[in-house]
Design a protein around this nucleic acid. Structure first.
Length: 314
DNA sequence: AACAGTTACAACCGCGGGTCG
DNA sequence: ACGACCCGCGGTTGTAACTGT
């Protein structure tokens, strides 16, 4: 037997909110607050709406500090990185983006960012295959027997990306596990605006007019943006940092595949700055880190590194 | 102009978890 | 300990706006 509905769906209005309803809700919350009881609020406010609907309308649309549209490259990057690390925990992701709601971030990912990321990643795959074909025809592969075919050489996460599922952080398969890792090779230069936004010191971006948004969206999906290095996120972040993080080193991550011999070894964690950034990431997302290692332990029998990294950063 | 297909976003739904009596 | 109530979350659906034919 299911739980009782929160309201009588036949007697309350549903569907899009009118400006009058918005104003009623806005003025009531402004004058009285939510009172901690959304179920009783619509009656008090004179709204013929379900309390749940009122809550959603307020949280996702009417709150004064909400930003709509106009996502910046930094926000794109944060969303991709966090989705890669913790999956579809939109409330957590949204909490790192001032003025954004979980619903907004979720919709943005599902309708725009996911397609953008997949397209960019597929482009990178093609370039990688092209390079490998040149290598195999012109010289020896590493470890002698590295005859590279697209299928054999493709890291598991590439196979994941080509059929990207909504929740890569479910640790139920090797593909999603690989996609769960944070990006230790991210440069501080790329990270700076992200970290600034985390502590709330970065100025809020001014959303461009809708026409400009659409124009920039079109530009984003151009095959070869003139200002972006091929195979990178705008701003120079390597795509592998977002979609192939398991390639980045066997000293930092559980062993997850046999592709370290296919030319990705140079991408290993390189410097102390990147390591510090990883520590910082662990501070912001301690649970994600713990869940990752728990999954690693479960699937690959790998033990987590000692906890307590954050002290060096505080 | 009309229609179909696609995109973007608001809103709904149902479940899990926390709180309280 | 238990059940009712409520909130918050993530997934899904509905629909207006836009685009292509």
């Amino acid at each position: 037997m299911g739980r009782a509905p929160c309201c009588d769906k036949m007697s309350v209005k549903r569907g899009p909110w009118s400006p009058e309803e918005d104003e009623l809700l806005r003025s009531y919350v402004h004058n009285h607050g939510t009172g901690g009881n959304w179920i009783a609020l619509p009656h008090k406010a004179g709204l013929n709406r379900c309390g749940k609907s009122c809550r959603l309308r307020w949280l996702n649309y009417l709150r004064p500090d909400i930003k709509h549209g106009g996502y910046t490259e930094q926000e794109d990057w944060i969303i991709c990185s966090l989705y890669n690390s913790i999956g579809s925990r939109w409330s957590i992701i949204a909490s790192k983006l001032p003025g954004r709601t979980d619903n907004d971030v979720k919709n943005y990912w599902n309708t725009k960012l996911k397609k953008k990321a997949i397209a960019m990643h597929q482009q990178q795959q093609q370039e990688y295959y092209h390079q490998q074909q040149q290598h195999s025809s012109g010289g020896r592969g590493r470890r002698g027997a590295a005859v590279v075919t697209p299928r054999a050489a493709a890291p598991r996460s590439q196979q994941c990306a080509s059929s990207m599922q909504p929740s890569p952080a479910s640790a139920s398969d090797a593909c999603s596990f690989g996609a769960m890792y944070p990006s230790p090779s991210m440069t501080l230069q790329a990270a700076a605006p992200v970290l600034a936004r985390y502590d709330g010191t970065a100025p809020a971006p001014v959303p461009p007019p809708r026409a400009q948004q659409q124009a920039s969206a079109l530009a984003e999906f151009s095959p070869a943006p003139a200002t972006a290095i091929s195979g990178t996120w705008a701003g120079g972040l390597p795509l592998d940092d977002m979609f192939l993080p398991e390639l980045l080193g066997d000293s930092e991550f559980p062993p997850g595949g046999d592709f370290f011999g296919t030319g990705f070894a140079p991408l290993l964690l390189q410097d102390r700055a990147a390591a510090s950034l990883q520590e910082l990431s662990a501070c912001y997302f301690p649970n994600a880190q713990a869940e990752m290692w728990a999954a690693a332990d479960h699937h690959l029998h790998v033990k987590a590194p000692p906890a307590g990294l954050c002290h060096s950063l505080t």
